[in-house]
């Protein structure tokens, strides 16, 4: 069942259309990656879903309620985190969490425990009584993420939540999001760090110039777009290895354009043919060429985006 239903959404700033005719549906308990180049309309869409930007056209249904006509009911279980961290500089960390717990209807008796729990979860316990203006950008991000998650929303709208976070904090964030998703929350997350999204999103929505390019699970998109596998090789003796590789490519009828290079790695791209890729690898090994590294990978979100998105941008 769709927890979020967007139909024919159009968001415009003056006469510049940021998003047009965008329709999609988000299912309960899934994590959706919201991907697109700068100016694709990701932030505008998320703002419209969060009710902080009025769409010029279209319908947004959240938890079965129309955002335009039943605003308070629609937003009851929606958590929103923008791409920067709006905070009250002169509030203490615990006070900030307390304020937004109250905003989502948590009564005063339960708030203290909830705030403590999320201070621990977001690793901000040591800064509990510090003024927010003294926190680093990464801590701001963690605080705003904690504020967004603490009330257990069933729809989470996160715009670039990982920006400014160090690798440890990013992993913590991923774990928190996975936990929320396991608890039934639907998460729409936009990010430029596509490799990170690959690790935990169920589906992807790719936007380009305000329009939907493609949407679906990563596997579906891979199939739809004819994307496939890449064989990543690193030879112990590069010259010998290259010679063998060229011969084998010729023998298999694979064009040279399917091979790219990333520093001392050679990447052979296969068009949606897993069998061909594994057979190619078997043959390569049987030639006795020295390989120091070898892996066969499916295209990830970054590859898909670069191939679809970058093409559209170009």
């Amino acid at each position: 069942m769709g927890v979020v239903k967007v139909s024919m959404l159009r968001v415009a700033y003056d006469e510049v259309t940021a998003v047009s005719e965008l329709s999609f549906q988000l299912e309960r308990g899934k994590i959706y990656g919201f991907v697109g180049p700068n100016g694709a309309g990701k932030t505008s869409t998320i703002k419209a879903l969060a009710g902080v930007l009025e769409p010029a056209q279209g319908k947004i249904i959240l938890n079965g309620f129309d955002l335009e006509t039943e605003r308070e009911k629609a937003l009851t279980h929606v958590g929103y985190m923008p791409d920067f961290s709006p905070v009250y500089d002169n509030l203490k960390v615990w006070e900030y969490l307390d304020v937004f717990a109250a905003a989502y209807g948590v009564n005063s008796g339960e708030r203290a425990g909830l705030v403590e729990k999320w201070l621990h979860k977001s690793d901000l316990m040591v800064k509990k009584d510090a003024l927010i203006k003294g926190l680093s950008r990464g801590m701001h991000q963690r605080l705003v993420l904690a504020k967004t998650l603490e009330v257990g929303p069933n729809i989470l709208l996160l715009d670039e939540p990982a920006s400014g976070l160090d690798p440890i904090a990013r992993k913590q964030m991923r774990d928190l999001l996975k936990e929320a998703s396991a608890g039934g929350a639907t998460i729409l997350i936009s990010s430029h760090i596509l490799s990170e999204l690959s690790e935990f999103v169920d589906s992807v929505i790719i936007l380009e110039k305000g329009k939907l390019v493609i949407a679906g699970t990563v596997d579906d998109i891979r199939k739809k777009t004819g994307m496939a596998q890449k064989l990543i090789l690193r030879f112990t003796k590069e010259e010998d290895g290259l010679a063998v590789l060229e011969k084998l490519l010729q023998a298999e009828g694979i064009p040279k354009e399917c091979v790219s290079r990333d520093r001392d790695h050679h990447i052979v791209h296969f068009q949606n043919n897993e069998v061909q890729a594994s057979q190619f690898l078997t043959k390569l090994i049987s030639t006795g060429v020295g390989l120091s590294e070898c892996s066969l990978k499916n295209d990830d979100i970054e590859d898909i985006f670069l191939k679809i998105g970058a093409k559209e941008v170009a």
């Binding site: 902080v52 308070e72 929606v78 709006p86 905070v87 937004f100």
Partner: peptide, 12 residues
């Protein structure tokens, strides 16, 4: 500080 957006978004 744009915290106004958070309050716009809240169900209160």
């Amino acid at each position: 500080s744009e915290t106004l957006d958070f309050h716009r978004n809240s169900p209160q």
